[in-house]
Simulated assay, not measured.
Amino acid sequence: MEWGWLLLRDAWWSAIAALGFAVLFSVPPRLLWGCMLGGAVGHMVRTFCMQMGLSIEAGTLLGAMAIGLLGEWLARRTHTPALVFTVSAAIPMVPGAFAFGTMLNLIDFSNTPDAGAGQVLLWQAAYDAIKTALVLAAIAFGITWPALVLRRPRPVV
């Protein structure tokens, strides 16, 4: 029962965040619901995958693929580009905590006089930076994959 509430709460706040980014990017009001739906579904898939034991990278990849598939479907239904739905839906999945940890560890590294502690901080910063890069790559690949697979090329003639 607790998983259900966790997923619903996660979907709600992700939908609100996606709505905020959609408004920021001037998405037409008639399409805001699709951005909210994409944000909710994608983040909910990622949270569910992480609850099932997958890493954040794998969960993010599956969540971004869900956003990409939903964005392609909504684009066909509403006759708009899929990026209208996918970009604002995927931004709440950006790993801000890992990026912040990278910067914080680099700042602490520059201020520490102890070489041993500095080495630990540098390794932690590298770990957080690599994790951030992998999650961002998973978002990028997950969003673009459905477009590459599902879009049928038109004949030249």
Rank of each mutant, 00 (worst) to 15 (best):
L62I: 12
M65W: 13
S55I: 04
A15V: 12
L70Y: 13
A17H: 06
L61P: 07
A17P: 04
A66I: 09
L70N: 11
P29E: 06
Q51A: 07
I67S: 06
G59R: 01
T47E: 01
L54S: 08
T60F: 14
R30G: 03
C49L: 14
I16S: 07
C49G: 05
Q51V: 02
F25K: 08
L70K: 12
R46C: 06
W13C: 07
V45Q: 04
G68N: 08
H43L: 03
W12G: 09
R30C: 00
M65K: 10
L24D: 11
I56V: 10
L70G: 13
G63H: 02
V45A: 04
M50H: 05
F25M: 14
G42L: 03
E57K: 04
V23P: 01
H43C: 01
T47Y: 00
L61K: 13
S26H: 12
A64I: 06
S14C: 15
A18T: 09
P28W: 02
R46T: 07
T47P: 00
I67D: 04
C35L: 04
A22R: 10
I67V: 15
G53V: 00
F48G: 12
L54E: 03
A22M: 11
A15M: 14
G59E: 02
G53M: 01
H43D: 01
V41M: 06
G63C: 03
G34D: 05
C35N: 08
L62S: 12
L54K: 01
L37G: 01
I56D: 12
M44G: 13
M65R: 11
I56Q: 11
S26R: 14
A22D: 10
L69H: 04
L54Y: 12
M36K: 01
G34L: 05
F48S: 10
G38F: 00
M44I: 11
L54T: 07
G34E: 04
